[in-house]
């Protein structure tokens, strides 16, 4: 019976669904776009978007793993981009990036501490920071874009921080790969990951075994903010400019990427590679709509449909596997 072999696989690897969806979409998009989608330039663009959205999705996946949610990451992304661009022309761009990423981590810490110490639902707290930091981003830029002229963007720092390509692939992808490796080691092979998933599985049980629940949750929010900040820096590095609306609605894409990738919103079960695959699928769809000249407004609508369908799909797949 083949299902006997498949069921344990599906149980353990929640990302199987997204792998199947990705393969299917790549085939369909390639077949129906007459080369407009599947060409080196377009794939390069998709991978660049995947890098920044993927970093954000990794962080959101960790927070989801603890049973919480962070919907403020789009604003964190924007703030970090603005800080980076503003500082990069004044100090060394590497230092500017460090400050911007630290600001992202600080926003994460703000969310995490407030949620853990007061017991306020994370949806409410991060909804607040979503608005606070979006407002701040708009206020700081006062309606204009901050930018660095292209000719000033030389040097290794600009190159490695998403400003250039290696073999047609944006350097942002290196950061995504590094983050994936480090976080996978932390999540699957270190005590921190065991405790993080335990908190998401059952807060009471984890607490009763001596896990510092608050500390664990705060750490997940800090990493989440840090990665959203890094994503913002890389996007700013790619574009060379940012305005107050940068990263708007990206938080929804990141959550969608996680759900698509097999992360259980109830917590305790996440897939990091799945979240990245989810980001890849979303940027592929977005790019497909563009090359097929569909109005971009349809993307948001489609995003919503995908989230609902994916959530139902992941749920029924798991139910089937547990039967």
């Amino acid at each position: 019976m083949p299902s006997l072999a498949i069921k344990p696989l599906v149980r353990r690897h929640t990302e199987i669904g997204i792998v199947l969806i990705s393969i299917l979409l790549v085939l369909v998009f390639t077949a129906t776009s007459e080369g407009r989608w599947a060409n080196a330039y377009n794939i390069g663009t998709i991978l660049q978007v995947t890098a920044t959205l993927g970093l954000m999705s990794l962080g959101v996946a960790l927070v989801i793993g603890t049973g919480e949610i962070d919907i403020s990451v789009g604003s964190t992304f924007g703030i970090a981009a603005i800080i980076y661009l503003w500082l990069a022309v004044r100090v060394d761009p590497a230092l500017a990036a460090l400050v911007a990423v630290a600001a992202g981590a600080a926003i994460g810490a703000f969310n995490g501490v407030l949620i853990a110490r007061t017991g306020t639902p994370s949806l409410i707290v991060t909804l607040g920071s979503l608005m606070i930091f979006r407002g701040l981003a708009i206020a700081l830029t006062s309606g204009f874009a901050i930018s660095i002229p292209y000719k000033e963007r030389g040097g290794f720092s600009y190159f490695i921080l998403g400003g250039d390509k290696i073999y047609n692939v944006n350097t942002g992808l290196i950061w995504l790969a590094a983050a994936l490796i480090v976080l996978t080691l932390m999540l699957r092979y270190m005590a921190w990951g065991n405790r993080l998933l335990a908190v998401g599985g059952s807060v009471e049980s984890a607490h009763s075994r001596g896990v510092r629940v608050n500390r664990t949750k705060i750490s997940a929010f800090i990493i989440c903010g840090l990665l959203a900040g890094l994503g913002g820096v890389l996007e700013a590095g790619k574009l060379g400019s940012a305005d107050g609306s940068m990263g708007r609605l990206m938080e929804l894409q990141a959550i969608a990427a996680c759900v698509l990738g097999g992360c259980l919103l109830a917590g305790g079960r996440i897939s990091l590679i799945g979240a990245i695959m989810g980001a890849f699928v979303l940027s592929s769809i977005q790019s497909y709509l563009i090359v097929m000249s569909v109005q971009p407004q349809w993307f948001v609508l489609l995003l919503g449909v995908i989230v609902v369908v994916a959530a139902l799909g992941v749920r029924s797949l798991r139910r089937w596997a547990l039967r």
Binding site: A198, E204, S208
Partner: peptide, 12 residues
């Protein structure tokens, strides 16, 4: 302590 109801995480 052997607790009632809590002590084990289903997902691990």
């Amino acid at each position: 302590t052997i607790q009632q109801a809590v002590g084990l995480c289903d997902n691990l």
